[in-house]
């Protein structure tokens, strides 16, 4: 274990990658590892990148890596793609777009499959971020799966969220809706070389003006083209100024606190689930299920009585 921790801290690629596998596979030493590295965590800037499939998230990351490398920064990337609900398999193709950096020692790219988790990222994502953070990557780029309207877990996992959109996904009403469209700290209109990109920019800016969020006027809309590289300078500029604004206003700190709060809840949840598993090991509630089927009793009453039983048991 110490060897693995030392490897991570010194930035050894094999150690980092084995450690990510450990948290991904929920291995036996996972918790010990995460406890050990905790004091090295909290130095990185975590940038979440989300948007619909094919919006150009991976290609945009490719150009962002280039810019951050010019500044001499170490960059870690976690790229998430979906797991098949039918076979459990996955085709992870994000890093195909990032091959410009495939031999750069200061760039670490890891593809993660969702493994049944919904919400746009995988369950192991936050733990994998900690490993990259402890390994000294100053910038961590998190790429979600291609999302629809409601996969917003990226907000909790990152310091700052880029929502990557492209023209042609519908009319103004789509921009007025709830969900993903609300979560961008920076709106990136990619493929700006295409028709209607500026129109989309205007629409989002108009919507932001109407937003009740008092910080909304700090949310910027940037036109980029990963193809030509245009707009990437101003995107980096907006990321920096938004990050500084968040830091000054205490928003960054608030976000990190929220993240920790949710993490504690998540750990508690899994502990409680484990204890349910242990308490009822072997029982399948057949008679209760039959009663529910025959409308003799409802599932809430059954669950309540099971819960009471659990509480009693934990007291003894």
């Amino acid at each position: 274990m110490n060897e693995l921790v030392e490897g991570i801290i010194s930035g050894n690629t094999r150690a980092i990658s084995k450690a990510i596998s450990l948290v991904e596979n929920d291995g036996p030493d996972k918790i010990e590892l995460l406890k050990e590295i905790h004091r090295y965590v909290g130095e990185s800037v975590i940038i979440g990148i989300t948007g619909p499939p094919g919006a150009g998230k991976s290609s945009l990351i490719n150009v962002l890596i280039k810019e951050y490398r010019k500044q001499g920064k170490k960059v870690g990337i976690l790229a998430i793609d979906p797991t098949s609900p039918f076979t459990g398999g996955a085709l992870l193709g994000d890093r195909l777009r990032m091959q410009d950096h495939s031999t750069d020692e200061n760039v670490f790219i890891r593809s993660l499959a969702t493994r049944g988790h919904l919400g746009g990222i995988s369950l192991a994502t936050s733990d994998a971020v900690k490993i990259l953070d402890a390994a000294g990557f100053e910038i961590i780029l998190l790429e979600t799966v291609g999302v629809g309207q409601a996969e917003i877990e990226i907000v909790e996992a990152s310091d700052i969220v880029l929502l990557v959109l492209v023209p042609g996904y519908g009319d103004e009403i789509q921009v007025l809706k709830a969900g993903i469209i609300e979560i961008g700290d920076i709106y990136v209109i990619n493929k700006a070389d295409q028709m209607d990109a500026t129109k989309l920019k205007t629409t989002i800016e108009y919507y932001l003006e109407l937003s009740p969020d008092k910080n909304a006027n700090h949310r910027k809309v940037v036109l980029t083209s990963s193809l030509t590289g245009s707009g990437v300078d101003s995107l980096i500029h907006e990321i920096n100024s938004t990050y500084n604004f968040f830091r000054k206003k205490g928003i960054l700190n608030e976000r990190r606190k929220t993240r920790i709060r949710k993490e504690i809840l998540r750990i508690l949840n899994s502990r409680i689930l484990e204890s349910i598993n242990q308490t009822f090991n072997g029982r399948n509630f057949d008679s209760s299920i039959n009663k529910i089927l025959n409308k003799k009793i409802d599932p809430y009453t059954i669950a309540d009585s099971i819960f009471e039983e659990m509480k009693k048991r934990s007291q003894t």
């Binding site: 098949s84 398999g89 996955a90 195909l96």
Partner: peptide, 13 residues
């Protein structure tokens, strides 16, 4: 095909 067989496949082009 390997994805369909249930493996996690990384394709780099």
């Amino acid at each position: 095909a390997l994805k369909d067989a249930g493996y996690e496949v990384i394709y780099t082009g």
